[in-house]
Structure formats: structure tokens, C-alpha cells
Simulated assay, not measured.
Amino acid sequence: MKWMIYGANGYTGELIAREARRRGLSPVLAGRNAARIAALAAELELEARSFALDDSTALLRGLDGIGLVLHCAGPFSATSRPMIEACIAQHCHYLDITGEISVFEYAQAQHESARLAGSVVCPGVGFDVIPTDCIAAALKEALPDATHLALGFDSRSGFSPGTAKTSVEGMAQGGKLRRDGRIVSVPLAYSVRRIDFGDGEKLAMTIPWGDVSTAWYTTGIPNIEVYLPGSPSMIANARRANYLRWLLRSTRVQNFIKRRIEAKVKGPDESVRARQPTFVWGEARNAAGVVRTARIKTANGYSLTVTGSLAVVEHLLREQPAGGAYTPARLLGPQLVTRLPESSAMRIE
């Protein structure tokens, strides 16, 4: 099967392209920037294609002969929908590395179309959301009648340009959690509690992470929150930002901040990634008050995105699952994260 990395000239896309080549894989490298894509493809001795996503004819032509796309061009809120639609039209599998709730919800809404086309649609095959999705699935197995699920991670990783831009969009939209099966909007840092993610107890706050969407499709647990550790000052600043969301929603302000990100944010280098593991945690609770807790230590988020996304790519190159919308744990099972480099065993208490 011929497959493609779209957005291969971005920070994470290039990391994935280089690791894929190191493994002997031969993806087609694609993106909007013809010169940068051509240069990287020439260096790695791979095929290059250049096309934009806002031209449906060019997009369909760009996917000619492609059986699988690993989409790495964010912000995915703007780029995922045309690529998902094109992949389904071309009977092509779609993967991406998003963590955005709106993308997961849109992908799940395409389940029937994807099923009929024989296309696997599985966003979130990177750090967003493989580790937390696998923990959610494992906790569901450990406590089948769970009614509440909390997930979280302690990561010291810096931001790539794409992640930083997505975070700006997320702040403008405020907090999100799932309550009684429905995603609801709440203020930033809506809930604060102390959590031991695996590296000691820390103060943590709720964030609008992708599992608010995906963990529901993986487990059916109706109440879901996601936490990130933060200092008292960080939490206070997040709560102050609630009063500025009207300003952050301005297109002019968003574009100004994103231009600054493009100029200044580069993403962590290999030595930094190697020094910064991630601790992932989850807690399930049932109506009787029984609690199960899960923890796992993984590689740095960007390193896990490289190995995790390629694990899913290689699975689809070998196997032929039925078409439809998936989460990572539903596609490959809750042990996917434990099979990735630098992952510890998952502990459930």
C-alpha cells in the first residue's frame, strides 16, 4: 500500500518522515510548501507531492494512488475536515496526530461514510491521545461499571509551533469536560485537585484535552475530565484568562499570536526530548465509590508521537480492519502504549 505523510515539512511531520525512512519505509512526502517538501524528499530519497487543502480538485488529485494518509499539518481544526472528506472519497485510510476535541467529534460523525468506503478514520495517533486512550480502555476493563473517569499527564516537553497554535485556539474556546455523556463548556481550570501522576503528588487543573471526546467512544463512561499539573500561579493565570477569552477569539489577535509563534517557537531538539519522559495517570470510579487508578511512564510526547503514529501506520499496512471511525485503543487495543519504546508497564491499583 502506498502511503503519505501530509505536512512532512512541519516539526513533527519531519521527525516522523525521518524515522519512517530509518525503518525502511517509503512514504510519499506532501504538503503546501513545495520547496521545503521537495528538499526533504530529495534528502531522504522519497517521492514528493505538493498541494493545498482548500482546492478540492487538487487535493483529490494529490491523493491519487494513496491508500493511507498520516496527516500532520495543523491546526487540525482548519485542516482535518477536507483531508478526512478526501480520504473517504478516495477509499483511503486517514490518521492524524491531533488532540483537538472538535476534530475527534467530526471524525466520529463520519463513521458510516467511512464504513461504506472501507476507510479507517483514526485521529489522535500520537501523544494526543494514545497513552490516555489506552489507560481509559484499561480502566474500563478493570472497572466495567465505572461512571466517572479522570485522566491526565505530567509532561515537561516544550511546544512545537503547531501545538502552540492549537493551545491558543483552545484558550479562546475555554474548558471542556463530559458530563452525563455530553461535552459541556466550563471555565479554564474549572476543577483543581492534587494528583500523583507517577512522579509525586502535584496540584493539577482540568484542561480541554482530546480524551473528553475519545475516551467516551473508547469506554462509554459518561463523565470525563482531563488534568494537567500546574503551579498555583499558572492556575491563577488560567482562571484570569477566562475574562480575556472574548479578546482571544478575535481573528486579528489569533493571527498576531500565531505569527509570533511561527517566528519564535521551534520545538524541542533530540537531546531535550530524551531527557523529558512523561507520566500518565487515570482514575475510574463507579456509583458505589470503588476506585481504580492506572499509571504509566512513557517517552517524551513528541518522541511517542513518532513511534505511536508509525505503529498505527504499520498495523494498517499489515492488517485490513473494517472501515469506520476509531480511537487508537479501539483500533489496536489498550496495550498499544506499552509496546512503544521507553514505555513502562501499566500499573493498575
Rank of each mutant, 00 (worst) to 15 (best):
A287S: 13
N300W: 13
A288C: 14
T307E: 05
A311L: 05
E319M: 06
T307N: 03
V265I: 15
E270Q: 09
V291E: 06
A329I: 01
V306C: 13
Y302H: 13
G289S: 03
A294V: 13
T338G: 00
S343W: 10
L331S: 09
F256A: 14
G333D: 04
P268Q: 04
G289A: 06
G282N: 06
V265A: 04
F279K: 02
D269L: 10
V313Q: 09
L304R: 02
Q320T: 15
G324A: 04
Q276F: 11
G301C: 12
V337K: 04
K258W: 14
V313I: 08
L316C: 08
F256I: 11
T307R: 03
G323F: 03
N286V: 07
V280Q: 03
E342H: 15
H315I: 12
I296F: 06
A322G: 09
V272L: 07
L331H: 08
A288I: 12
G289P: 04
G267V: 09
P328W: 04
E319W: 06
A311R: 07
V306G: 11
V290K: 14
G282M: 09
F279Y: 15
K264W: 07
F279T: 10
W281I: 10
L317G: 11
E319L: 00
Q276L: 15
E270K: 06
T293Y: 00
S344G: 09
T305Q: 01
A299Y: 05
L340R: 09
S343E: 13
F279L: 08
H315E: 13
G324P: 00
G323P: 06
I296M: 09
V312G: 12
R285T: 15
R275E: 15
I257E: 10
N286A: 04
A288H: 15
I261M: 04
V337H: 02
G323Q: 00
A263V: 04
V265R: 04
G282W: 04
Y302R: 02
E314I: 07
A322N: 01
V313S: 01
E314V: 08
R285P: 11
V290N: 10
I296T: 14
G301E: 11
G324T: 01
G308F: 10
V291Y: 05
T298S: 08
Y326T: 12
E283M: 07
E270P: 01
